[in-house]
Design a binder for these strands. Structure first.
Lengths: 143, 143
DNA sequence: CGCCTCATGTTGTCATGTCAACACGTCTCG
DNA sequence: CGAGACGTGTTGACATGACAACATGAGGCG
């Protein structure tokens, strides 16, 4: 068949609308409470959780699933706002969270947790969460 | 509890990654085949499917779930590329798809259908599609 | 008519995201 | 050592998206 069936179209529209809406709602909660954007928060938490405060720019990009240039632009903006610092390190660059970055991240975590529950996990059938997670993971990285 | 459990964090990461990846893959298929971006395609199909080729800018914005300024910017770019025209119409503006716009949209539809199947519906457990659609719809517009 | 209000778009500014071109080390191999 | 190849980042140009300020015209009401 050439075109989408009504059921497929409905799935496609629901997917797009849900993706945009959930992302926007959670981002807005975090931003209202802390001034961090969604990309800001993702980077800062990875610096702490994966690197104890410091990561090679390279590894950071891989863990975010981002291209180098995207990360470079984002880090430039975040560095200007004093959330982190960059320093050359043997064939690469180390990214280190600043004190201000640590404080803001600590403040953002519970807000983020509440937002994820309110706008995402709390809206899903409780018994299906594990299965849904597996389906989502398979979408972007098929087994 | 203050912070997310490991299971919740996994869901959140999977959600974000899947949202971005699926959107990007489908958009890239359409763009490679026709030069249209995802917003381009959304607007052109709505002009045809909802208005038979012409819609008030107002209605177009509502059907996309967009703010006026976003639509205005997008239409400016699309008008410059000859995909549509704008003309004042009693207290508003009529947006009309051009012939070129119609041709490109017709070419894009089967590509879009194939992309949705390859990157989204085809990756889901077949028996669960209806349930997943309902879950997604409930996410952005709770019953 | 003259003024006000509201709906509708437009515009400017900035953040975000994508892509291609470039810069700069390190490493290998001659 | 020295010339490339490669890995790693940076930069510039542009598309997209969010938000606020402004322009404009239609309607309502004196």
């Amino acid at each position: 068949m050439d075109l989408l069936t009504a059921e497929e179209t409905r799935l496609w529209h629901a997917w797009k609308r849900a993706s945009e809406t959930v992302r926007a709602r959670i981002a807005e909660d975090i931003n209202a409470a802390t001034g961090l954007s969604d990309p800001d928060f993702g980077i800062l938490t990875r610096l702490i959780d994966l690197g104890g405060g410091t990561l090679r720019q390279n590894e950071l990009a891989a863990s975010m699933g981002w291209h180098r240039s995207r990360l470079s632009h984002q880090l430039t903006r975040m560095e200007q706002r004093g959330l982190l610092t960059r320093s050359p390190a043997g064939g690469g660059v180390n990214v280190t969270i600043s004190q201000r970055g640590q404080g803001v991240t600590a403040a953002a975590r519970p807000v983020h947790a509440a937002a994820v529950r309110r706008h995402l996990s709390g809206m899903l059938p409780p018994g299906d969460i594990h299965k849904i997670t597996a389906i989502l993971e398979n979408l972007y990285d098929p087994a």
